[in-house]
Computed example of a mutant assay.
Amino acid sequence: MRWFGFGFNAFGQICVAEGKVKCPTELSGGGCCSESRHIRASWSRRASLSLDGGSCVSLSGFGDALSSESCRAPLAESRGCKDALLGELYLTLAFPDRIESWDLRKTSKTPSWRMDIQTQSESSGAPLNLPLVPGGFIATKPPFYRPLSPDLRAKSLALGAGHAVLLTATGAVYSWGLGSHGQLGHGGLTSEEQPRAVEALWGMPMSSVAAGGWHSACISDGGDLYVWGWNEVGQLGLPSQGLRKASQQQISQAGELHHDATKGEKSEEVFISIQAFPALLDVTPSCEISKVSCGSRHTAAVTTTGDLYTWGWGEYGQLGHQSFTTLDEPHHVEFFRDQQMRVVDVVCGTWNTFAAVIKEEETCSENKTPSLS
């Protein structure tokens, strides 16, 4: 599996010299993390997590105290970890028997915070899945440990800029935190201190959740994508008035817009600034959605056929369309299909995107049924 990155790169998160990367660029590994299985991203950094044998984390991006190099340096403190959570100031590592949070600004050889956990046996169920930990979850800043009611039966948790979206074992969705832009999905703009069920999704089991700056998303068991929250620059894939106005101004400046001819048509167009309830987004009618991730103001989704679609703010090239265009409709990232690559995972950083791919022939060989002789 190979990882590609595109978008904001001012600190070398994608390990190339440019400040903006509009064309998907393959990430280079280093040390024990040359074969990255997972990527975690913050605004100024990227963490590459290897789960092969000597599992470890390497950091790329803004210079930090833990790493002696600016890119691809495996952290000795991370050897043996099973998962990682990356914030702007702290790196949290999950080990079989403990959780550690390291301050990226300090050179201390001891973690800023540590919590011992019960060692998981082979029969103890699913492995650790940060930010979830036994009894609660880990935040990206102090206080790190936040308790959760065991009645929720949490399966996965996505942390946004100021809100959280939780998926239960039964497929129900809960949210809490800042709600000023409808990102909680409860129909209003109020905040919630405690987890509250997203009632609009009740009775429709979900398989995964995602949270961005001020918007959220989830995928149903049937592969349908639901989105809600702020749509200022089309990050929900819904018509954005500001984006359309900017586009019309550009066309007008080029002398190609006939206001009289389109006045009636534009007045009938419906724009969405805030979508406070979950809305079904038809990314592509031909296949289902398998993965979704949210950045600060953009979104990316992978289909069951291995295609990547992106939309929202694109001024750093984070949409992967080899341009700096912002879009309020899902668009297919042609690069990977042109290179005969199948996308299997996607992770949105704040202003960038990382996609995991395999070659199409690998997929064919995996699916090939051996002949009987």
Rank of each mutant, 00 (worst) to 15 (best):
P24Y: 02
G222H: 07
G179S: 00
E256P: 03
T305R: 07
S220R: 03
S371F: 10
S240P: 02
E362N: 14
N367D: 03
L104C: 12
P205N: 12
I272G: 11
G349N: 08
A254L: 00
F335R: 03
S108K: 01
A169I: 14
P147N: 14
A139T: 09
F335P: 05
F336L: 15
G162K: 09
H163Q: 01
W102M: 02
S112K: 00
D52G: 10
T168C: 06
L152K: 08
S373C: 06
T310G: 12
A164M: 03
F137I: 13
H163I: 11
K141Y: 15
L281G: 01
T284W: 01
L132P: 03
E193N: 09
G237P: 04
A254Q: 08
L159V: 11
I39F: 08
S220E: 08
C32V: 15
A279D: 05
S208L: 09
N367V: 07
A210K: 06
G177M: 15
K368S: 12
P24F: 04
I272S: 00
H181Q: 13
A211D: 07
M204L: 11
V133L: 12
P239K: 08
S247G: 13
G29N: 12
R297G: 01
L91K: 08
T350P: 03
R72H: 03
G29H: 08
E35K: 15
K106N: 12
K359R: 14
D224A: 12
E334D: 15
E192A: 09
C71Y: 08
E269P: 00
T353A: 14
A84I: 10
A172L: 02
G31I: 06
G61Q: 00
G234K: 01
G255A: 12
H215Q: 05
F137T: 03
R40D: 03
Y174T: 11
Q249A: 13
S112D: 04
S108F: 14
R297T: 05
S28F: 07
T299K: 02
T299R: 00
R244G: 01
N231Q: 00
E362G: 12
A279K: 07
S240V: 05
V198Q: 06
G203D: 05
